[in-house]
């Protein structure tokens, strides 16, 4: 049936009227196929025969090393800047501090700061010092032996600053129900609260 001069490549196939040509494979297509096959071979050899490439676990360790260095540097920088910090009065910062407090601190220090497992944060008695920077230090490092969590593992430095600034505003707050009484803490001059 291949008698049509315009279709020299027509095969003598006929299925329900469908015919087929016998064109060559497009060259670029053939190359595309070859290239992917070669790539596959090289890839498998590189990772699984010569073990030149890093597989997931090694890749992860590498990523962790780099990431943790960056993080450690940032944390070190923050740590050394703690003595110079001052409480923020910015409304946005205080609001985010309030949210952090409600989520992470209220279970131990009570929603209003009156104290439960953790000490009262509204009175004038402080175990670890009354300065703002003392508070930041305690939150940053925690007191694991006494049940205060080491928050630097959970919160970012700026979150710690904002939650510290927030509890600073709680100082001297009038509580609806009495707060936890001070234990063997020493009273200190608190410095003014925002509400005084």
């Amino acid at each position: 049936m291949s008698n049509d001069p315009k279709e020299p490549l027509l095969l003598d196939h006929n299925y329900d009227g469908i015919q087929e040509l016998d064109n060559n494979l497009p060259r670029w297509w053939v190359w595309l196929f070859y290239i992917t096959i070669i790539y596959a071979a090289v890839y498998l050899v590189y990772f699984h025969v010569t073990h030149t490439g890093n597989l997931s676990a090694a890749e992860y360790d590498q990523e962790m090393k780099v990431g943790n260095e960056i993080k450690a540097a940032a944390m070190g920088k923050f740590e050394s800047s703690i003595p110079t910090l001052t409480p923020s009065t910015n409304a946005v910062v205080l609001d985010s501090g309030r949210q952090t407090y409600a989520k992470f601190c209220a279970p131990c220090h009570r929603a209003d700061g009156g104290g439960l497992v953790g000490p009262n944060l509204t009175d004038s008695y402080w175990i670890h010092g009354s300065n703002f920077t003392d508070n930041v230090t305690v939150i940053w490092n925690g007191v694991p032996a006494k049940g205060m969590i080491t928050w630097k593992k959970v919160l970012k430095p700026d979150e710690i600053c904002s939650v510290a600034s927030y509890i600073y505003t709680l100082r001297g707050a009038k509580l609806a129900t009495p707060g936890k009484p001070p234990e063997n803490q020493t009273p200190v001059n608190n410095g003014p609260s925002q509400f005084e």
Binding site: E7, L10, L11, H13, D16, G17, I18, Q19, E20, L21, D22, N23, N24, L25, P26, W29
Partner: peptide
């Protein structure tokens, strides 16, 4: 492979390509 050549009334471009 059935409907396209039918609707277009054209032969399939390449039998070899089909096979491969």
């Amino acid at each position: 492979y059935y409907f396209l050549p039918k609707a277009a009334n054209r032969p399939i471009f390449s039998y070899r390509l089909s096979i491969i």
